[in-house]
Amino acid sequence: MADQLVVERAGAIATIVLNRPESHNAITLGMYQEIPSIVSDLDSDTSVKVVVVRGAGERSFASGADITEFEAVRGNARDARQYNEYVARAEQALTTLRKPSLAMVHGYCIGGGCGLALACDIRLADERARFAITPAKLGLVYSLDSTKRLVDLVGPARAKWVLMSGKQLTADDARSWGLVEYVLPAEELAGTTYELAAEIGTRAQFSVRASKEIVTRIGAGQHADDEYTTNLRNSSFDTEDYAEGVRAFLGKRAPNFTWS
């Protein structure tokens, strides 16, 4: 999968590139199978602070699963169930990545491509982007985990509209519905995405990752601190970054955080 999935590194930012521009970055079974190990490697790499996911070129993030594989990898019920497991593992790998992740969406973000984008923490799109999730066009049912990510962003009624109709949303509609956080001119998307990634990388990483975990727990239904979240919050006071943050605040200078 080295040619279909490319990992680029620039300082503390790693980018996972869906690299099939000739097919609008349609996602093959092999790509789904490879994503968890790539994400795991980036999660354990202390030099990486932020992960960006994008499609090659500027026409598409990903147009969905590669339909040319359907007969070979999803031609019967047993194979289809196994295929769905690989999709779920790829999305779950991004969701459970301890580090922040940004989806940079040029153009089409359809089906499984939208599933990967929703598994990231923050989505930025160009003004030409189009979003759709299309199980009703294929006779499929999406997993509860994948569906919940959509519901958490747009609410139950709009999630039903997206899933039942399979219709495309414009970038502006996707933003107004909460599916994406930023919509930008195409020529500004990469710059803004990587500026945000770099800015997050300068922040106290213990705080960044703890905040991500707590938000995830709230989304999973936790409504009050338990022993784990209380200890997580209190343990921040023991970090060198907390001491540095206080020193920098009192000294009226930018902090130099070192925890990774």
Rank of each mutant, 00 (worst) to 15 (best):
5 L>F: 01
7 V>A: 07
9 R>L: 06
10 A>R: 13
11 G>S: 14
12 A>T: 12
13 I>H: 10
18 L>S: 00
19 N>S: 09
19 N>P: 02
20 R>H: 01
21 P>D: 05
22 E>A: 10
26 A>G: 05
28 T>I: 03
29 L>N: 02
30 G>N: 02
36 P>K: 03
38 I>P: 00
39 V>G: 02
40 S>M: 10
45 D>M: 05
45 D>V: 11
46 T>C: 04
48 V>F: 09
49 K>W: 09
50 V>F: 13
54 R>K: 15
58 E>H: 12
66 D>T: 06
67 I>Q: 11
68 T>K: 12
71 E>D: 08
72 A>K: 13
72 A>V: 07
76 N>D: 09
77 A>T: 08
81 R>P: 00
82 Q>G: 13
82 Q>E: 15
83 Y>W: 10
84 N>A: 12
90 A>V: 00
90 A>P: 00
92 Q>S: 04
92 Q>M: 02
92 Q>R: 03
92 Q>K: 02
93 A>P: 00
97 L>E: 01
102 L>S: 05
103 A>G: 06
104 M>L: 14
107 G>T: 02
109 C>S: 03
109 C>Q: 02
114 C>Y: 08
114 C>W: 08
120 C>D: 05
120 C>S: 12
122 I>D: 07
125 A>G: 01
136 A>P: 01
137 K>I: 09
138 L>G: 11
139 G>W: 10
143 S>V: 02
143 S>H: 00
143 S>R: 05
143 S>F: 01
145 D>Q: 13
147 T>Q: 11
147 T>A: 09
148 K>H: 14
150 L>I: 14
153 L>E: 10
155 G>S: 03
161 W>P: 07
164 M>H: 12
165 S>T: 14
170 T>M: 03
173 D>I: 13
178 G>R: 04
178 G>C: 04
178 G>N: 06
180 V>N: 00
189 L>S: 01
193 T>L: 14
194 Y>P: 05
196 L>P: 10
197 A>V: 08
198 A>R: 15
202 T>C: 14
202 T>L: 15
203 R>H: 13
205 Q>S: 09
205 Q>P: 07
205 Q>W: 11
206 F>S: 01
207 S>W: 06
208 V>E: 02
209 R>W: 05
210 A>M: 05
212 K>M: 02
214 I>V: 09
215 V>I: 14
218 I>Q: 14
223 H>R: 15
223 H>M: 15
224 A>N: 12
225 D>A: 14
227 E>A: 15
228 Y>S: 04
229 T>I: 12
230 T>E: 15
235 S>C: 11
238 D>M: 15
239 T>W: 12
240 E>W: 12
242 Y>Q: 07
242 Y>T: 04
247 R>F: 01
248 A>F: 08
249 F>E: 08
251 G>T: 01
253 R>F: 07
256 N>V: 13
257 F>L: 07
258 T>W: 02
